[in-house]
Design a protein around this nucleic acid. Structure first.
Lengths: 404, 404
DNA sequence: TGACTTAGTTCAAGGGTTGCACCAAACTGG
DNA sequence: CCAGTTTGGTGCAACCCTTGAACTAAGTCA
């Protein structure tokens, strides 16, 4: 029923193969190396089916079998020894690319979750608006590097700071990039092998997915991601999928009006959460000046250094933490995420924020609290999440593996 | 990946049939009566497949064909005339049952969305804790009535005021009913034909689904439902599915701490939204006494009558509306639902609440506002949503149609 | 009446899984 | 050392579902 379906609505027997192959892949990821017999038992498929599926995966290089004759450690087992199959994803990778005003990053994740590529480029391309052909060229460079290393593309996902249509292809509005109603997916499709799925998603949503996939909340099905930069953004992962909302605005938590403050926000409204916990509000609280054009994370590191020696700075951060916790608690009550991941400058200042946030969440969350973690993905969060988007499409059988 | 999967993980060719049959059903529901040829074109299936699927649906009584020879109105068409197929769901119904302390209700919805049964019983059964065998007996009575009328059960869903495990079968905690760790699904399975799917869900979540299925937000994929009784509850529908959260607490919006109020709440915390917009807070604002044991909706009707003639009451409701809107705006920013449905006593007092709520949402929601509707389902909302749960399982191919 | 057009059915072919028979490769016990 | 046992893995006929093309059905138009 989702408008973002990648596969056509009709089902054929090939979809059965795709779904069962994905099931085997999920099982291998969750349980680690397993023999065909164990796979058959834990998936519910017959031995014969597992045999053919593993055979195809092996042809693709997605799995490999341990050499025969290798004695297993542990107690002696009866019967013919098993030959475990291991998820060896490196030949197949999902490529995630973050596009920002003066920053582009690419991450390739293989099926086993390992990073096979990380590259970044700084500097603006194009004037008022980011040049799409430069993005296309970046995609082509990444593809060439991957193919030179023997990798094969499962799919491509682009993370952009803006609003994406429900078809996950068209950027409706990305003011920072100067893009409006731009079919970004079509613009870069030429740079990848024909048939490769190409998707576009919001950068904060991608970062949320990254945390739930390979980050500090790895494996969690329900995650709330809250990131602080100049603005405050977020992403909601529910049942393993990102919540987009009707128009793709879900996660615009920076403009929730929470307290009784009347502080003016950059968006023109008053009392937005962002005007209390955004970068500018933080600097005001700790009594430090705002220098535009300096990376928010560098600014936060300066503040962290000051906090280590200045009690007034720490007091300012404690007040900030209280407002941060207030918003997190509200969202935790509405969504019961189980885990909240703090990213952006919140992660940099975590030592001075976490205690207060945890205390207040334990007190104010109806479900009985909520784990709070700090992101370690840093700048590569969005690109990593975009790559994870590709992988989740494969593991959840929304996209088939390529033919051998 | 969801823990609530109803179907086994392995896929077979039968799943293909189930999925394509569901696709045909969805198309018939969305587009109305259509010929096989039109169905083939709009679903993407071949004519042959549509023929066999429609044949099976016809055997089940789920669809019927118009009598041949009935001339179609409109311009003369060339070629063999089509024989449109109509969704005639009445033989197949989903049964939803709400269980509350001194109230039980049942609703049966057929595939076409028509209500084929509504019945309610008042009065407590059991002492401190609601007697499960009485619930089972109620299920059996409903089943007998349905079968006597020639209906067949597609599935059963029970809505309870409490927390439900992720398996959608076990009630973890329903304090009002006196239930803890009760396998409610198992307790009533004996009352329905063998093989009938049985599920349990939270009542507010069910009500939210009812609004998105047959209520004022019918057809919406993204809905936020907010209901006011003594407490304040809610439900989030995203991409057509209810968001449950990690522990099933999603939607416990009554205990969000929004403003800077320190009002004590019944839950022991301070500043909860419920303590500002719950029934007791409303009565306080309009200067009317709280009489326990009177149905909140009756109380609200009294208030409505007073509001019509008393400006002070209207002023109190205006203040309430402001706080109601504040919470709705926060949630709309986080989830971008597109539509908010107000239920419970909020619906009763809608004439005095809606203008303020709409104004404030238009101002405070980043996505550019949010439609606000008032529920018309009243007491039968939860049971209707439970029945809709069964139907959505069929239309989304999570549950197969029975064999003829 | 006959050509044309559109609706619907029939049927061989192909892809996928199942379940069972069968082969393979170890250990156990005498 | 060799048969017996146990467990891992493959091969194959049967079954289910969709596809696509050929074919039948039932109207309109000239």
């Amino acid at each position: 029923m989702s408008a973002a379906d990648l596969t056509p609505a009709t089902r054929t027997s090939e979809d059965v193969r795709v779904a069962n192959t994905a099931l085997v892949l999920r099982t291998l990821r969750a349980d680690g190396p397993s023999s065909r017999a164990v796979l058959a038992a834990s998936t519910g498929l017959t031995k014969g089916t597992v045999g053919t599926i593993v055979g195809r995966l092996s042809d693709l290089g997605a799995v490999h079998e341990d050499a025969p004759g290798v004695a297993q450690p542990g107690p002696a087992t009866r019967g013919r020894p098993s030959r475990p199959v291991t998820l060896e994803g490196s030949p197949l990778v999902g490529l995630g690319i973050e596009v920002n005003v003066d920053y582009r990053a690419a991450v390739a994740l293989d099926l086993a979750g390992a990073t096979q590529l990380f590259t970044e480029e700084r500097g603006a391309v194009g004037g008022d608006r980011v040049d799409v052909t430069e993005v296309d060229a970046f995609v082509r460079r990444c593809r060439r590097r991957l193919e030179a290393d023997g990798h094969r593309l499962l799919g491509l996902c682009l993370a952009v700071p803006g609003l994406v249509e429900r078809d996950r292809r068209v950027v409706r509005s990305a003011p920072n990039l100067g893009w409006h109603d731009l079919d970004l997916a079509a613009a870069v499709t030429g740079g990848v092998p024909a048939g490769t799925p190409v998707r576009v998603d919001n950068d904060a949503n991608c970062a949320a997915r990254a945390e739930a996939w390979v980050g500090v909340a790895s494996g969690a099905e329900h995650v709330l991601y809250v990131t602080g930069t100049v603005g405050v953004g977020g992403g909601v992962v529910s049942d393993g999928d990102v919540v987009h909302g009707l128009r793709g605005f879900a996660g615009e938590i920076g403009h929730m009006r929470l307290g009784d403050s009347d502080e003016r926000c950059g968006c023109g409204r008053r009392g937005c959460w962002e005007s209390q916990v955004g970068l500018l509000a933080m600097l005001r609280r700790v009594g430090m000046p705002h220098e535009p054009d300096v990376d928010p994370l560098l600014v936060a590191e300066q503040v962290a250094r000051r906090a280590a020696v200045d009690a007034d700075v720490r007091a300012g951060l404690a007040l900030l933490a209280d407002d941060l916790a207030r918003g997190c608690a509200v969202l935790a009550n509405a969504l019961d995420p189980g885990t909240i991941v703090l990213g952006g400058y919140f992660a940099t200042l975590a030592p001075w924020l976490l205690p207060t946030v945890r205390d207040r969440l334990a007190r104010d969350v109806f479900a009985g609290g909520c784990a709070v973690r700090t992101s370690t993905l840093g700048l590569r969060a969005a690109a990593t999440g975009a790559a994870a988007h590709v992988l989740s499409d494969v593991f959840d059988a929304r996209v088939p593996l390529p033919a051998p």
